[in-house]
């Protein structure tokens, strides 16, 4: 057999061999709706939540936190209901992670009030002395850049109009800057005075964290 004296044929053959497994386990599932099912209960991220998600990615929180609860008894006990495929229909990219230096976050939404997160993100060690999570206080010192929020939502196919995006942003700003915002004190503790009337990166990140696992509760309730 002369294939070891024909480099181009050899390369083509290698490509074919490599593409067999790829086609069966990767390409075909891409076209099967059952791989990534959708549910009307699972809503896309708001513009602010999406900005928060992008900050989560930028800071590489996924290097310490997973976002998939496995269907194991002790895991469900620790984190809550195991993850369902529908939950991830809008996740581009997915953020399941591969290492749990910190706990899973797929069910962290509404687990704590916003105030908890302001305090924790600013300094995990102030709450848990021996935690090795990095402090992220500077996120509260960065104004949230919403310049590309509309473009992002469009790219991701969330179906928001310009006014939707605008409204989502102003509404969330109104919420966190409201005099009666329940987490006002913690927020003010970490946010410099000049940014207290604005949205900060930390506000957006917390909005995202609070969304995690929220919609799936409605989905499960309907079942």
């Amino acid at each position: 057999m002369g294939i070891t004296s024909k480099p181009v044929v050899f390369a083509v053959l290698a490509a074919v061999v490599i593409l067999i497994g790829t086609t069966v386990t990767v390409f075909i599932p891409l076209f099967m709706p059952s791989t990534q099912p959708v549910s009307a209960s699972i809503k896309p991220y708001t513009a602010v939540e999406q900005e928060g998600r992008d900050i989560y990615m930028r800071e590489g929180c996924n290097n310490c936190h997973t976002q998939t609860v496995r269907p194991l008894r002790t895991e469900v006990l620790r984190y809550g209901e195991y993850s369902k495929p529908e939950e991830f229909a809008y996740d581009r990219p997915f953020l399941w992670g591969s290492r749990r230096t910190g706990p899973d976050l797929n069910r962290v939404g509404e687990k704590y009030p916003d105030s908890w997160h302001y305090k924790h993100l600013d300094s995990p060690q102030s709450m848990f002395e021996k935690s090795n999570m990095p402090p992220y206080g500077w996120l509260a010192k960065n104004r949230l850049d919403t310049q590309y929020s509309l473009k992002k939502a469009t790219t991701l196919g969330y179906g928001y109009s310009e006014s939707d995006v605008h409204q989502q942003i102003t509404q969330y700003r109104a919420t966190v800057t409201d005099e009666n915002y329940p987490s006002k004190e913690s927020r003010n503790n970490v946010t410099p005075p000049e940014l207290r009337k604005e949205l900060t990166e930390m506000d957006a990140l917390i909005a995202y964290l609070q969304k995690l696992g929220r919609d799936v509760k409605n989905m499960e309730a309907k079942k």
């Binding site: 386990t25 992008d54 991830f88 581009r92 997915f94 590309y148």
Partner: peptide, 17 residues
């Protein structure tokens, strides 16, 4: 900044492949 063309479980499958 960019976003993956694949979503959720598909993105995971492509990525780990």
């Amino acid at each position: 900044k960019s976003y993956s063309v694949y979503a959720g479980a598909n993105d995971a499958n492509v990525e780990w492949w």
